[in-house]
Design a protein around this nucleic acid. Sequence first.
DNA 1: CAGCTAACTGAACACTTGTTCAAATCAAAG
DNA 2: CTTTGATTTGAACAAGTGTTCAGTTAGCTG
Lengths: 201, 201
Amino acid sequence: MARKTGSHSEITGPRIQDAALKLFARHGYAAVSMRQIAAEVGVQAGALYNYVPHKQALLFELMRGHMVALLDAADAALEPAARPDAALEGFVRFHIGYHLGRVDLVFISYMELRALEPENFSVIEALRGRYEDRLEAILSDGKDVFDVKDTKLATLALIAMLTGVTNWFRESGRLSPEGVADSYVEMARRMVRSKEVLKPR
Amino acid sequence: MARKTGSHSEITGPRIQDAALKLFARHGYAAVSMRQIAAEVGVQAGALYNYVPHKQALLFELMRGHMVALLDAADAALEPAARPDAALEGFVRFHIGYHLGRVDLVFISYMELRALEPENFSVIEALRGRYEDRLEAILSDGKDVFDVKDTKLATLALIAMLTGVTNWFRESGRLSPEGVADSYVEMARRMVRSKEVLKPR
DNA sequence: CAGCTAACTGAACACTTGTTCAAATCAAAG
DNA sequence: CTTTGATTTGAACAAGTGTTCAGTTAGCTG
């Protein structure tokens, strides 16, 4: 017995990615076997190798795809010419919105870095750096409006704060993604002490 | 051949913990074998079972020990009667100082939660909750001094921001732990818009 | 120096791991 | 209806997994 009824390359390929994403996020890369992924897809382990050269590539492509899509989405969503305060708000809303819609990808992209072989690790790190640069640029472009001593430090603090949302947010919780974003916009503004926030006082 | 020269229970026990901590932090729980841990200690795999009932207990005890020590240290370091602003500053400095001295433990305590069996997971989650309550109490005790709409949200945002330091901090970097703490105290104060910060303006 | 026991070895257990590949099967084309 | 080619199976590979345990040894006690 071989070839299942109604099997197609265009179907199986993405399903492998989906299954791997789900299982890696739930149990971790090292704890998931190729056989488990295959079972989730409804196929034997050997069939995976028509689509993926090896397990490591499965993880790497998941992470690389995520980072590239994130950068593209950021380019599309953020307005380069925006005033500093609006740019910061835009970034916060984009970051939270985008990340809350892809918690599994975000999770493995932060958690499984150490499972990457050195060359792959470097690629992901570089992409992450490029994303962080977007926020750093906003902060340094607005250095007349904002009040931050250490731009790099503020960038890292903000990113950590924002990404932390994916760890506790639940669709069924009391807050909507928009509600969360509202609060985080406020906190982010305060952190950089945006003049626009202080004015109304 | 058995029993190595100069071997002692009081020596080997802690060395196993140290080796497990180091390897779990570096490669992840699932990716590290009992034989690797044994090799790091300089012993055969079987010898580990004189000290640990099974691999899972090794991880669990590492995490539980960390959380218990963290709570104890917090109790010792934080002054319950402090004014809100001083209490917040005290918490930030304590959190950063304590965590920067134990990056490996912090790392696995956040990363390997999913590797814990359900009952063990609950224990760690409860301990973590008790720690977060310390900060939440500070924020709600100071609700006249601070300006926070959602105390729980601010707690989670602050903890994420503070713990994030362990991900990028390097002993050899340009900033000292104290310098980092200074900046984070400032950012934390701004986030809750402590009146004491606004006064000098 | 003999005897004792805590401490450790080394081999074995039954599985699981990632990966390969000849053979089998199915869908579509001629 | 046959041929072709993509798709999948199922078995096999060598290596590694956590854990157990009879047997060996080092160092202390008397």
